[in-house]
């Protein structure tokens, strides 16, 4: 299957159709995406700030990581699921949208940054875990992470203002849903 056909089949899939036809789906899934996305950002920010030495270096880096990253991964899984549903509903439009493409690039960047940090810098964490200056590589990883996740959120909001929709909201809908 070539790429356009794949996008076409994603957009024609049952979850995509449900997203387009159910009145409840879009606002609820979008709200979940915002909540989960904000949770990913907020929890990662605590780790990134610790890498930058804020508020201090008393709390072990390993402890901050293990506490926060559980929450981060749960929120990321929820956000990804909600985002995939939003994507499926308008796959064709998203793929052609510049803000969406840049967001995926920023997400990839955040993933690579995290992998490099955990693969290399984090290995000798024992020597700077607590009450010690954080090495430059780890501080750079923290700063990069903040920059990339802020970019992800800004680009995400830009998608909503720059993409058209492939469907129309029904004019006189039958309401079977209360928020």
């Amino acid at each position: 299957m070539d790429f356009p056909a794949l996008i076409q089949s994603i957009q024609a899939s049952p979850p995509a159709q449900w997203m387009r036809t159910s009145l409840a789906a879009m606002p609820v899934v979008e709200a979940i995406h915002v909540l989960a996305g904000a949770t990913v950002f907020g929890t990662i920010l605590i780790v990134d700030l610790r890498l930058l030495g804020f508020p201090d270096t008393r709390r072990p880096v390993t402890r901050v990581c293990s506490e926060m990253l559980r929450l981060t991964w749960i929120a990321f899984a929820v956000s990804l699921t909600a985002g995939a549903l939003m994507f499926a509903a308008n796959a064709h439009t998203y793929i052609g949208n510049t803000a969406f493409r840049l967001k995926m690039l920023a997400l990839l960047g955040a993933g690579v940054n995290m992998a490099l940090f955990h693969g290399f810098t984090f290995r000798n964490v024992k020597s700077w875990d607590q009450n010690a200056p954080v090495p430059l590589a780890a501080r750079i990883a923290g700063a990069m992470s903040i920059l990339l996740w802020v970019s992800v959120i800004f680009l995400a909001r830009w998608i909503g203002f720059t993409k058209g929709f492939d469907f129309q909201v029904p004019v006189n809908p039958h309401i079977d849903f209360q928020f």
Binding site: V34, A38, T39, L45, W158
Partner: peptide, 23 residues
């Protein structure tokens, strides 16, 4: 045209800070 998306982005970014701080 960029003012409102920018303000909304900051608003959402801050949700992460406020909600997680409270959590």
């Amino acid at each position: 045209s960029w003012v409102i998306p920018l303000l909304q982005s900051i608003h959402i970014l801050t949700i992460g800070i406020v909600f997680i701080s409270f959590l």
